[in-house]
């Protein structure tokens, strides 16, 4: 699909909107529909679009294997780390009320961070799944 200039231009136009929308869904999940799971998937689908139009080579340059793999682990670590952090601040595991002086702020902060962790893991997982499937060389 490399040669169609219309497709290329339209994709380039759409990409920033898809990614910004993903970030909006990620951080607006407290107030409207959305959250880490959705944002991660939307982010990944934007990336899939990029890969389909510009080819695997370019995609692997944007998201090399080490990056997706690190992000995959990082998300889970953020989630689990939030739990540890709330223990350090004197609460129970994953009890966000302890994260700030005001329990409300603590809960809000905790939810935000945890959703970020979920989003990173899901996005990285979906991107690496897609790249691994697409990256197979077709024998016979």
């Amino acid at each position: 699909m490399n040669s169609h200039s219309v497709v290329r231009v339209v994709t380039k136009l759409l990409m920033p909107f898809i990614f910004i929308y993903a970030l909006y869904v990620q951080f607006h999940g407290d107030f409207g529909p959305g959250g880490g799971f959705q944002a991660g998937v939307i982010f990944a689908s934007g990336f899939v679009l990029y890969t389909l139009v510009f080819g695997l080579e370019n995609a692997r340059r944007v998201a090399p294997a080490w990056l997706t793999r690190t992000a995959l682990g990082l998300g889970v670590l953020i989630f689990a780390g939030t739990g540890i952090a709330s223990m350090i601040y004197g609460g129970l595991y994953l009890d966000y009320s302890a994260l700030a002086h005001d329990p409300h702020h603590g809960q809000h902060l905790g939810i935000l961070i945890v959703e970020l962790g979920v989003g990173i893991t899901v996005a990285a997982a979906m991107i690496s799944l897609f790249l691994v499937f697409a990256g197979q060389d077709k024998d016979d």
Partner: peptide, 20 residues
Amino acid sequence: ILTAIVVGIATTALGLALIV
């Protein structure tokens, strides 16, 4: 169900990988 959907796609991908 929200979490089940995402977990479902991950396990589906695993199944497809096994098929390959």
